[in-house]
Design a protein around this nucleic acid. Structure first.
Lengths: 146, 146
DNA sequence: AAGATTTCATACTATTTTATCTTAAAATTG
DNA sequence: CAATTTTAAGATAAAATAGTATGAAATCTT
């Protein structure tokens, strides 16, 4: 049950690293993140570019540069990140991949799947990066290989 | 939110076609299925091979040959099909793709994701191919392009 | 019974998508 | 200017998907 692409997973883990390990607003070196989380540096770079363009991160070049959240972590939900990296139609896809699946011409699992997607979306929307950062520190959750 | 691979989707749609369109036990031509559902014939053939080897389908060569369910459609759940085509660990994967994610060393979304996977699994397990076939005919649900 | 036909099985190749690496340019600091 | 660090384009590799060609089993026709 692979739901998220690598790029999205990398982006999420990296953002969670930033909010759980670093003071808010501080620029974090991308190489440090890639090494801590054992993620391909260049791939992470691309993912971060997307997040920067979409206004979730801001970046700064040069010594002591890096990336930082563009706004306080309370203001970003998991859904914001996922929708940015997977596409806005992430929660609107047919389980059987049928184009135009909907009330008018539903696939056999349409109703059931609609409900699941909505549940997931709700949970993603009500969980902020700040919530996650706190939980990660409180419960010592891991973001990378042990 | 792409959850299932193409191969699995093809297998599911094809099986649902068989149970909803054909008398139980009758051999169905693979080419017919691939054309009705607009699925690559050879790719479908491969998926069917897997289902045949795993005892979900039986096949018969020669004129009027084809594939048929190996047992009555009441005896196969959606979960049976999905687990066969996606792998037995389908419902046990970490949302963030971390190896060894579990109670001992959980990722930040472990608990939440565990619950979702369990719900999904339960629904897949309690829905049989026969149930689906009936619903498809009763509610005129579609399995392919309109 | 022979041979042609139908149909699934399998190996091999090609294409597409996704992920990763290479390289170099632009911005910043000191 | 030299060092650092993000940005970005393009090449390469790997995985998923699709297509081609051929083989093997069952049936039908004559």
């Amino acid at each position: 049950m692979k739901v998220l692409s690598k790029g999205c997973i990398y982006g999420l883990r990296a953002l969670l690293y930033i909010v759980s390990e670093k003071p808010a607003g501080e620029y974090v070196n991308i190489r440090e993140i890639s090494e801590e989380l054992d993620i391909s540096f260049h791939y992470l770079t691309k993912t971060f570019q997307t997040l920067t363009h979409k206004g979730i991160l801001r970046s700064y070049r040069g010594p002591n540069g890096g990336v930082a959240l563009a706004r306080p972590p309370e203001e970003f939900s998991l859904a914001d990140i996922v929708l940015t990296l997977e596409g806005e139609d992430f929660f609107n896809k047919c389980l059987l991949g049928l184009a135009g699946c909907g009330q008018a011409a539903p696939c056999p699992v349409h109703d059931f799947w609609i409900g699941h997607k909505a549940e997931l979306r709700t949970e993603f929307e009500r969980t902020s990066l700040a919530d996650m950062g706190k939980r990660i520190n409180r419960e010592k959750l891991r973001l990378g290989p042990v």
